[in-house]
Write a protein that binds this DNA or RNA. Structure first.
Length: 289
DNA sequence: CATTACCTGCAA
DNA sequence: TTGCAGGTAATG
């Protein structure tokens, strides 16, 4: 089994891509868009770490699914190939016609060629991304998978309350903690906390059941709405099939620093919370208790 | 717990 | 030039 971070790239490419912010909704959408690869056979695999994947040749893609923010390819022969996009990774399906448009490679760290000439690229400028390959036991026993909490999308209210009741720590830090709940990122956390009118620095212990319930509702609304409109596209660099996310048009707090709060008109502030830039409305998100 | 490191690209 | 960006693991 091997696990590599994307690293030293070789050439550069310039082409239009969809710049998704890889949190749960974006990873979910990516996973859905990768479904057409199901059933295809891998002809070759290349990565810039020169990690051998010879035995990957000829394996068939049985299933593609999301686990937290990771995308898992279940292959024949009891093999798993998984990707984590971290901050800047993207998975791109390019066919031959699209390939012809590509002039130079741009931070491509891995390529999978399929039997029907289609290919999947893993692009990651910041090189934080991770690729796993091995048996299910090996991959799933990796720290990321083995400590992942239940998925944030669709978690039942009762289970959610159990996760957050009598839990120590700041609420935003907990929401971002993948061991607590899998899938929440900075955008979803800020939007959820604003929606639920909870200050990100609130100690979880001080939240009552009603507030935790409100947090659950807000989280589900934010996740579902984001997925519904195709996730959040930060930069509009254009997209090969004309699609892009639209959740950026629905953001109420993230990226809105200095603008008036949509609820109360107060100027939205930026603070640091859980080590991350955090936007909030000081007026309608209850103070730290 | 909070802070730092890991990287590159971009805007101020 | 500086500071900031979607995430996680390793530190103190």
């Amino acid at each position: 089994m091997w696990r590599v971070s994307t690293s030293v790239f070789t050439k550069r490419f310039y082409f239009s891509i969809l710049k998704l912010m890889p949190e749960l909704p974006e990873v979910e959408i990516t996973t859905r868009k990768l479904q057409p690869l199901t059933g295809k056979t891998i002809q070759s695999f290349w990565n810039d770490r020169a990690v051998a994947a010879k035995n990957i040749r000829g394996l068939k893609v049985l299933r593609i699914f999301r686990r937290g923010k990771a995308i898992v390819f279940e292959l024949s022969g009891a093999r798993i190939l998984a990707f984590h996009q971290r901050m800047s990774g993207r998975l791109l399906i390019v066919d031959e016609s699209y390939d012809r448009m590509i002039r130079q490679q741009y931070h491509i760290h891995a390529k999978i060629n399929f039997n029907d000439k289609s290919r999947l690229l893993f692009q990651d400028p910041r090189k934080f991304g991770v690729i796993w390959y091995g048996s299910p036991e090996e991959v799933y026993s990796d720290k990321y998978f083995s400590t992942l909490g239940p998925d944030a999308l669709g978690i039942r209210k009762a289970d959610f309350i159990l996760r957050f009741k009598n839990r120590r720590g700041g609420i935003k830090a907990l929401l971002l903690n993948q061991k607590c709940l899998a899938g929440i990122g900075n955008v979803v956390a800020d939007e959820t906390l604003w929606q639920a009118k909870i200050h990100p620095k609130t100690q979880c212990l001080t939240l009552n059941v009603k507030q935790i319930g409100a947090l659950h509702n807000a989280l589900q609304v934010v996740l579902r709405r984001s997925i519904e409109v195709g996730g959040t596209t930060l930069r509009d660099w254009g997209h090969p099939d004309g699609q892009k996310g639209r959740f950026q048009n629905h953001l109420c707090i993230y990226g809105c620093v200095g603008k008036p709060c949509k609820r109360c008109g107060q100027k939205i502030q930026r603070i640091i919370c859980a080590g991350r830039g955090t936007s909030l409305c000081e007026k309608c998100q209850s103070k730290v208790v």
